[in-house]
Amino acid sequence: MTAVLDDYLNRRPAAIQPLEFPHNTHLGKEISCDTCHEGVNTGPVAGLPSVKTCMICHESIATDRPRIQQITAMRDKGIDLAWQRVYGFSAQDHVRFDHAPHIRAKVDCANCHGNMAEQTVAEVKVDHSMGFCVNCHNEKKASVDCLTCHF
């Protein structure tokens, strides 16, 4: 049933990640989101970290863990991590979302992505339906003209 509903509502299938990345562990160390999701402050999309980004810290941190040794080996072989996007709109939605103005408007990441400190692998915790977007736009007196997002 849910598969039929997902199809009807244009929801994308759940992402399958190359690595069981523990968001909670990293956020517990008070690392901010944009450390790894680069470009989110300045552009439309939040970057997905390359294995080189991981190695900035993990060259010296927690090098004894098997998963870290796994990514170190990947880096050495020149293989990158094939992350899949968890959130996103389907082409038929004609939505042009830009992260940067939302972050400038001081919308907390957790508003739309749930509390990542409670998630290991990222999951869809918030339903990005149009009603969800428009509610917040109305509250913050942001434009609700169709052309704000749909073009």
């Binding site: 939605d93 004609h94 434009s143 003209d145 169709c146 052309l147 749909h150 073009f151």
Partner: peptide, 18 residues
């Protein structure tokens, strides 16, 4: 369906979803 409508900055918008 108001797919063709006017925006505040004077554009004659066409909203494909609508």
């Amino acid at each position: 369906t108001y797919a063709s409508h006017h925006t505040d900055d004077g554009l004659n918008a066409q909203v494909y979803n609508r």
